[in-house]
Design a protein around this nucleic acid. Structure first.
Lengths: 336, 336
DNA sequence: CTGAAAGCGCTAACAT
DNA sequence: ATGTTAGCGCTTTCAG
């Protein structure tokens, strides 16, 4: 009834406790007989090694700290789901830390380190350089997911956001849009900055200036406001790029239900992320896809397959295709 | 640079190692001087107790295993968010286990137990009685969230689903609907069964039989099909209750965009959960609210404040109010 | 290949 | 109130 330890198994199998340990340690040298004997005893008692005790010696907790800010934006649950599954395949599991923006990241990081995690993934969370140091000191690999800090020493995985923004601009240009608006995400984030820059740069090359710009802060309520502001003046845009899908969804409600505009006839709407919702018939949102699976795969690689001490921080940028649906006018014969 | 232990702190502070331990153990007897001296040394070195080592002795890992199946349905991320935050307040953190339906729950549970978790929360996941035993043997509290197993020995927290279904029926009846349909969730779940029973029973009392019933299995694609089937015949319902919001959203796309029906003029649609999406203007879904915060609060209570050995399994049922929006006809002067 | 012994970092009696 | 001591359950030398 109480917890069964390797000691118990050893006794039952009539071997030493260290023999039991070896049987459960991949790559230790044990005879087949021994292995069989021990395994049988273990099964009988329902023995499984205590990961926590093991971690004390090996230094591997098989825990990965995952810091998440919001789960409202469907992109994060999606990533969380893939990440968890992928970690599990490798015998690891994510320990979750919800950290809102006003949370002290220093404190959060301390809590994480208390668990002796083998790695940290920051899902759309920013972090200071001071914290970078602490992690490197503990030689714990850290991967920024969907964020990128210029001067800092973290690995990072992002979509090629600049390129993505650029693709949206090209679509608008090809469709002949003239009054082009942009709804910005949270200004502190690299995703926001890169997407906007790619977008605006490409418009400029075609001689087009942004017609209007508002800030939605990646946030539902603020986006509602921003959209109202943008579409409340006499002349409003005929095409708007939203820095993520979440904001585009919010706006779609305002545009169609509140202001009675037709999408894409009156205004083209494009988002970024391609969360599952985007392909739902109600939205059918044209958007730049963030390739979740590849992004997670790269994250895992940075976590496990890169010697953190030796190498420079690596920034992986993955190309995201434009998913053409029907929230934006499609130019004749347009592809990619 | 290496990990700093209580030993290091002891040396620096010129005290015994156990003194350091006491300072970091709430409720141990230490003089103020001692505490100050140790705290200072600890801060200087950046010392924090190793939770895992501590767990070996105390038997508390401060880890709660959380099993999740899908994160598609927005209800789960929402719960996860609240649960994580609430656990964190108490110094606990959720270790995530994604388990799809075809995953072997036995294996998943083993993995969880390997981490010596202090409790388990099953988010909309079913579990066998055999597993119940293993947990009780290890005296680990288990809480089923949004599920309820008749004969089993788990604590459970649910909304009063029967009552919820009943409220929807009352709304439809009061609105004068005659051809009433139901789209069922996954038949193996208590939520599906209870919601349907409450709904159907109440209709019956008013002398109304279900006009049509299809199965959406709580799943987007199947619901699309189920909805098409239901609305493809000559005569179709003028009101449909979907066993959860997720399915209602899927159907809304089919109804409005594909079949050109007007909601609620042609057909009233009601869901269950009241996920954040439900109140978005695009959906504006009338639905039964699952009071996420109270449900989590009760979960926490069952996890920590109930002596698991002593007591019988407790099933907490929380009332969920009907949120009247405009996807369903509202009878004159209707409230609650 | 196997067993004995040491010890990971910590808490909890047990003395003093 | 503090230090000494004995483990928690495990891995890993080290002998043999």
């Amino acid at each position: 009834m109480a917890k069964v330890t390797s000691q118990d198994v050893a006794k039952l199998a009539g071997v030493s406790q260290s023999a039991v340990s070896r049987v459960f340690t991949p790559g230790a040298s044990v005879s087949k007989e021994m292995a069989d004997k021990v395994r049988q005893a273990a099964d009988e008692l329902g023995y499984r090694p205590n990961i926590l005790a093991r971690s004390l010696i090996t230094g591997n907790s098989r825990i990965i700290g995952v810091v998440v800010s919001y789960l409202n934006n469907q992109f994060y649950p999606e990533i969380l789901e893939i990440l968890s599954a992928e970690l599990r395949k490798r015998g690891y599991h994510p320990l979750m830390f919800m950290a809102s923006e006003n949370d002290d990241m220093d404190e959060v990081m301390s809590e994480i380190l208390d668990y002796q995690v083998d790695g940290v993934v920051l899902l759309s969370v920013n972090m200071s350089s001071a914290l970078a140091e602490r992690c490197r000191a503990a030689s714990i690999p850290v991967v920024l997911f969907n964020r990128y800090l210029e001067k800092d020493r973290f690995h990072a995985v992002t979509t090629n956001n600049y390129e993505g923004g650029s693709k949206v601009a090209e679509l608008f240009i090809a469709a002949g849009h003239q009054r082009i608006g942009y709804i910005a995400g949270w200004e502190e984030t690299s995703t926001q900055r890169d997407r906007e820059k790619g977008f605006v740069d490409t418009l400029k090359k075609a001689g087009i200036e942004l017609f209007d710009r508002q800030v939605g802060n990646y946030n539902y309520e603020e986006t509602i406001q921003a959209t109202r502001t943008m579409f409340t003046s006499q002349e409003y845009p005929d095409a708007v790029f939203f820095a993520n899908d979440h904001m585009a969804f919010a706006a779609l409600g305002v545009l169609e239900k509140e202001l009675g505009l037709k999408v894409p006839e009156d205004v083209s709407v494009v988002g970024f992320d391609d969360v599952p919702l985007a392909s739902w018939p109600v939205f059918n949102l044209t958007t730049v896809r963030q390739p979740a699976k590849s992004m997670v795969a790269e994250t895992i690689r940075l976590l496990f397959d890169v010697d953190s001490n030796a190498s420079q921080p690596i920034h992986i940028e993955i190309d995201g295709p434009l998913m053409i649906r029907n929230s934006a006018k499609v130019p004749q014969g347009y592809t990619s």
